[in-house]
């Protein structure tokens, strides 16, 4: 079922190659998204970790803002770390323009600078399954507030770290660095495939 999927990874800056590698390992055809034409025909999009300031700058520089904002409103999208910041609705003390795909307020580097970055094994409940997922929090964003439509899927230290709203999934941490595919499969099964099933044009 995965073989027919096309999932893009925003490849302006950051660890997009790790996500593409993971997609390929699952048999999904992954695509680097650098220009708006790269979004055509995609079933889903991953916005990777990296520097949100840089990504925000390059989104405008390569005239991606409009198409990207439209894409994340009605297609499956997963934002990790900087990707979560880009998909949020409000960012504390920042002039960045997030895309508002999920109703959360975040603080960039909310856990502190690199010396406060950390690794932990997370115990998650995804659907009816309990799983242990290796997770790196690297200069990670902190979720300060969540709107009523947001589902908090996991917390760490009392702060939400994995959340969703509609077709949008966000995580403040990285699992792709550890070649763990649990969350990627969850994203595909619960976000990409259901959204694709609703699109009659994809039924060929």
């Amino acid at each position: 079922m995965y073989e027919r999927l096309k999932i893009g990874v925003l490849a302006l800056q950051g660890d997009f190659e790790r996500h593409l590698y993971q997609l390929t390992a699952l048999g999904v055809s992954g695509r680097e998204v650098r220009l708006s034409k790269d979004l055509l025909g995609l079933d889903g999009l991953i916005i990777p970790g990296g520097e949100s300031t840089t990504m925000n700058n390059l989104i405008d520089r390569f005239s991606l803002r409009q198409e990207l904002s439209a894409f994340v409103k009605h297609k499956a999208v997963w934002g990790t770390c900087a990707g979560m910041i880009m998909l949020a609705t409000r960012i504390i003390d920042s002039t960045l323009e997030p895309m508002g795909a999920i109703d959360i307020t975040v603080t960039r580097n909310g856990y502190g600078r690199q010396v406060f970055s950390f690794f932990t094994d997370l115990n998650l409940t995804l659907g009816d399954k309990n799983v242990i997922v290796p997770a790196s929090f690297i200069r990670a964003p902190l979720v300060n507030k969540t709107g009523s439509a947001v589902v908090v899927l996991a917390k760490y230290d009392n702060h939400p770290i994995l959340l969703s709203q509609g077709n949008c999934l966000v995580s403040s941490f990285h699992t792709e660095l550890h070649s763990d595919k649990t969350l990627l499969k969850y994203f595909i099964d619960k976000f990409v495939l259901p959204a694709q099933a609703l699109q009659p044009t994809n039924g060929k």
Partner: peptide, 10 residues
Amino acid sequence: VGLAEMLKGG
């Protein structure tokens, strides 16, 4: 190494 990964393509 994770932070180094985040700096790729920059």
